[in-house]
């Protein structure tokens, strides 16, 4: 593990921000608390996806499969078989991990290029949605209703509002820390070489299948856990929302806008786009139907055109050049270190 990881782990700014966020439920009105919770969910989802899609450069469109498994499978196990949702969460995560491993193997076995990989993972995601909709035991098209959240921790209930907010905060911080750990471990170095040039990566001793699979399994399992928590938050498990490839597209968009392959990139994307989308819907949704999508789309296009490599790298290089001009003698600031 490189020391950058511990630098962040020991950083008072990092923990200060988390403590400040944790106070959210005490000050935010419920509508804004909802937006904040949603933002944290998407920070977690986009950061998890970033392990495969950003650091590893494998544009996986299969992630709705893992969210869906985490949400639908654990809910179905509870409702149909009475299996505790904590156990259901673990089972769903294992199933997601297995699916991730299979997808990685197919990718390796058939030497899929980036485009084929994206399309095949999309096909898997579509299949997943169709299977859920067509299977009565999984709730079918009408979805599943979880019992009311009474705050019974042992039953995977966290109490609506503050409790579930803290759960999502934990998951979001966890996802970011996993990213940071991966980037500062050999795995991150291997994944970045694989992303940039597979043949050359092999030539310096990188095992492509092994590292791609590890990344995919970590990402799939964590995504699945977020899916289970998301289901608990929503109470109504709607397959058209939680198992739909549209969800993956949102995740990919957030990670791309924020900065692919950076530990804090997807988080920045989520912090910008989720509140923007929600607030636009709240303000404009009533006046002219579809207008909020139009504005949202225009903002996304503008951000991507202005910062093609993502917001975070753009901000970092801005900051670096500003610091550079402030003290021309200074060493290259550590914030410009890769993956920061």
């Amino acid at each position: 593990m490189k020391s950058e990881f511990f630098t962040v782990l020991r950083s008072p700014v990092f923990w200060g921000a988390i403590i400040l966020l944790a106070l959210g439920p005490f000050v935010l009105p419920s509508y804004y608390l909802h937006i904040a919770t949603l933002t944290l969910i998407y920070i977690a989802l986009a950061s998890s996806w970033n392990i495969v899609g950003g650091i590893g450069g494998q544009i996986s469109l299969a992630h709705s499969l893992f969210v869906g498994t985490g949400a639908v499978l654990s809910s179905a196990l509870l409702l149909k078989l009475g299996i505790n949702m904590w156990l259901g969460m673990v089972i769903a995560a294992l199933v997601s991990g297995l699916m991730g491993a299979i997808i990685s193997f197919i990718d390796f076995r058939f030497r899929l290029g980036h485009l084929s990989f994206a399309l095949i993972t999309l096909a898997f995601a579509e299949m997943g949605e169709i299977i859920v909709i067509g299977t009565e035991a999984l709730g079918g098209a009408s979805g599943l209703f979880l019992p009311k959240d009474k705050g019974d921790l042992l039953a995977f209930q966290f109490g609506s509002g503050a409790g579930i907010f803290w759960v999502m905060l934990t998951l979001a911080v966890g996802a970011i820390l996993i990213n940071l750990a991966v980037l500062n471990l050999p795995l991150g170095f291997y994944l970045r070489t694989i992303r940039d040039n597979e043949a050359a990566a092999q030539a310096i001793g990188v095992n492509i299948l092994r590292n791609k699979t590890i990344a995919m399994v970590i990402s799939a399992m964590f995504t699945s856990v977020i899916g289970t928590a998301y289901a608990r938050y929503l109470t109504f498990v709607d397959p058209y929302q939680l198992a739909s490839p549209v969800l993956t597209v949102e995740i990919v968009l957030i990670a791309t806008v924020g900065g692919l392959g950076k530990a804090f990139g997807p988080a920045l994307g989520a912090v910008l786009l989720i509140p923007l989308g929600e607030i636009l819907r709240g303000k404009l949704g009533g006046s002219l139907p579809g207008l909020h999508y139009f504005v949202y789309g225009a903002v996304v296009i503008a951000v991507i055109l202005a910062t093609p490599r993502g917001l975070l790298p753009a901000l970092q290089s801005r900051l670096a050049s500003w610091r550079g001009s402030a003290k021309s003698e200074a060493k290259k600031p550590s914030i410009a270190a890769p993956g920061a």
């Binding site: 593990m1 490189k2 500062n184 471990l185 050999p186 170095f189 291997y190 970045r192 070489t193 992303r195 940039d196 040039n197 043949a199 050359a200 990566a201 030539a203 310096i204 001793g205 990188v206 392959g261 890769p338």
Partner: peptide, 29 residues
């Protein structure tokens, strides 16, 4: 180990990171 005639670069990795990855084949981080 081999090198490539057409230089194979890693677009988003700096010199130290690339050589570190190669060194990881025998050494800890």
């Amino acid at each position: 180990v081999r090198s490539f005639q057409i230089v194979q670069t890693f677009a988003d990795m700096d010199v130290l990171d690339v050589v570190t990855t190669a060194a990881l084949s025998r050494r800890p981080m």
